[in-house]
Design a protein around this nucleic acid. Structure first.
Lengths: 146, 146
DNA sequence: TCCTAATTGAGACTGAGTCGCAGTAGCAAT
DNA sequence: ATTGCTACTGCGACTCAGTCTCAATTAGGA
């Protein structure tokens, strides 16, 4: 798919710009991340790779994810704090959205609201605050669990 | 102050209801928490107590904070995920609010918006989701830092 | 091809939070 | 007051995500 190639070269440019190298490990991690269409955590990523016979160390996973974030290919979303691990998602398949998380079954429902977004901007304006990113999570019980 | 006494007995009732005991440690932690008017983390709480000559173990701090949350005296707010430690605040002096956090200087600006709250409820309704609590954080640069 | 800075993996480390356990202490019934 | 039941405490060991160190390796420009 064309978009994927675009993201790959976006990452190449990022690496170049920072005098970083495009190692096999980084390539393999990047390709895998772009292929995951849901949330994932570093460990899940590592075991997916391992299942395909690619072994990359934990340290490299973390280091590469940081680069992917800086390069704009990945977004970090913390979900609720019952989970201690961080969650990531690639920016290709997933556009900006917020999460409702079910505290019973862990289901994640996504939502966006332009109205909320613009209210948010207004409030930032009032406080002369320049927003960079935000998270908005609602914890509760999903349809099935309450 | 009257409200403080009210919170104390609210906690007493919580303990009673659950067959729990109001030990000296719990009393001392509760009183201290109600006296802190800002965000705090468990460690800060412990050292405040220690400075006053009250020694309570880390485990007890954590255990009691959990009870205080369940009893409605304290709220856990995770702030941004650059901080790994959890932050708490007592519900007495601080009413419900969201946070804007400056990524440069760490300043925390609080806000609430009834409009956002009600939009949120609408969205939950649409998804048949029963909201229990939510967090809404905006990260960016404060007035002074951009 | 050479050279050097960037990268890697392994394992040690860190730090927040949890857990198991042995000893302690409220409290209700006797 | 004593007993017995249960909850509570502190301690230290433990867990687990994430970071760091370091020696060995490698990408990639000159």
């Amino acid at each position: 798919m064309a978009k994927q190639a675009e993201k790959l070269s976006q990452f190449d440019r990022y690496l170049q710009r920072h005098g970083l190298k495009n190692t096999p490990e980084r390539k393999v991690i990047t390709r895998e991340v772009l292929a995951i269409h849901e949330h994932f955590d570093p460990e899940a990523l590592q075991s997916r790779l391992r299942r395909k016979g690619k072994r990359v160390s934990r340290a490299t996973i973390y280091r590469t994810l940081d680069h992917l974030i800086k390069g704009g290919l990945v977004r970090k979303t913390s979900l609720d704090d019952e989970h201690k691990t961080s969650f990531y998602e690639n920016t290709l398949v997933r556009s900006h959205h917020e999460h409702m998380v079910c505290i019973a079954c862990g289901a994640v429902i996504e939502f966006t609201s332009d109205e909320i977004e613009s209210l948010q901007d207004e409030i930032c304006d009032e406080h002369r605050f320049k927003p960079i990113r935000h998270t908005h999570q609602i914890l509760g019980y999903c349809r099935r669990c309450h």
